[in-house]
Write a protein that binds this DNA or RNA. Structure first.
Lengths: 202, 202
DNA sequence: GCCTCCAGTTCTATTCAGGTTCTATATTAG
DNA sequence: CTAATATAGAACCTGAATAGAACTGGAGGC
């Protein structure tokens, strides 16, 4: 059942995923040809057919209602991978089998993001509690003042406000019980920037 | 069972959604034909029939009362109404034109919910900050210990942890600068129970 | 009760546009 | 080279959309 698709077919599929919203209605083969810069709908038809067999596009059994993606594909739109747990002072605890979690668009950025769950109270002064979910944009740099997921000395992960100066990196914990920590730049590996947070009460 | 709709049918439906208000009464087939530039109500009837089967238009079983849409709001499955702002000590500030906001299923309950945005720092010790969005389940009762949206003396709304005893209601603010307040049961009107919270950092 | 009107329904025929099939040619990979 | 993949282009097939006419049945008037 799992039919491999060619590179070109992948390209076309990616195009569909990205641009399907631009069409007011599901596009016809001709319209898609136009959009893709092709001039033969016959060729495109063959590609689409392959995508249908791969289960990525809804089959149109002699019906004329335009090209549509399969239901399965479009509802994963607002899911992000839930990678694991972060507890101050320990490495990120990765979940063996990766889960997904629904994240509203407003809590993420257009860049790749992932979700971690908080263990412990190290960020309590920032209003980030034990059990909260945080949305992190995958990046290796950050602006001063951002809250980052940082891996220190390749061994312990923390969620802290960062302050970078030439030759010196300071991580400010948001719990007044702890003091800011100073490091050399090569000790600190930024793994992402905090962009959202969610908590459930029930 | 889910009947796929044809392109033209989608067009007609879109037209209905957009222009139905322009008619003083639900339009007849003939009127709609006129508006759509068609000259055969027979053809239009067939399209409408398809929309009825798709559940988008109310069936009219041999009655003559014009075309009506079904109250079918299911397309915005994970949207909740954003009603307004809540600031401790003032009534809820209602937004004039109601907006919607996307809320993950995990942050809401199966009961009716709505969203408010926090103004001020009255819940800061609970990790609920100025600007945060809270998800509230619409209820008029709550269990002790829940955080509720309560309207006190019909004039000021607050987000507080509730403790109900016979003849006495205590609201515990989560900011240590303030003291718990005691009321008579008929002074406090519960408007909902906190079930989720979201914050954005970018 | 009967009649008329008219919105809604049913039917058929016709046209048309969107999907399908095919062949030929170009391009790329192995 | 050969094989696999892409593209162009034409021919074709058929469901969808339309027009038009005829039928149905409920509402209202008499």
């Amino acid at each position: 059942m799992v039919n491999t698709i060619t590179r070109r077919q992948q390209e076309i599929y990616d195009f569909l995923v990205e641009n399907l919203d631009d069409f007011s209605h599901p596009p016809t083969l001709d319209e898609l040809c136009m959009a893709l810069g092709l001039s033969s709908k016959g060729s495109l038809h063959k590609q689409i057919q392959a995508l249908i067999e791969a289960g990525l596009v809804e089959p149109m059994n002699n019906l004329r209602r335009g090209i549509r993606l399969t239901e399965h594909q479009q509802q994963e739109e607002d899911m992000l991978p839930m990678l694991g747990y972060i507890a101050a002072g320990r490495p990120i605890e990765v979940i063996e089998q990766q889960e997904s979690i629904q994240v509203p668009e407003s809590l993420r950025t257009s860049k790749p993001c992932y979700v971690l769950q908080i263990k412990g109270d190290s960020m309590i002064d920032e209003g980030i509690f034990d059990g909260d979910f945080i949305v992190v944009e995958k990046r290796s740099q950050a602006r001063n003042g951002s809250i980052v997921v940082a891996l220190v000395d390749n061994s312990e992960a923390t969620l802290k406000r960062i302050e970078q100066k030439p030759g010196k990196v300071t991580l400010h914990p948001a719990n007044s019980d702890f003091k800011p920590m100073h490091y050399k730049p090569d000790q600190v590996d930024i793994q992402g920037v905090l962009v959202g947070q969610m908590r459930r009460y029930h």
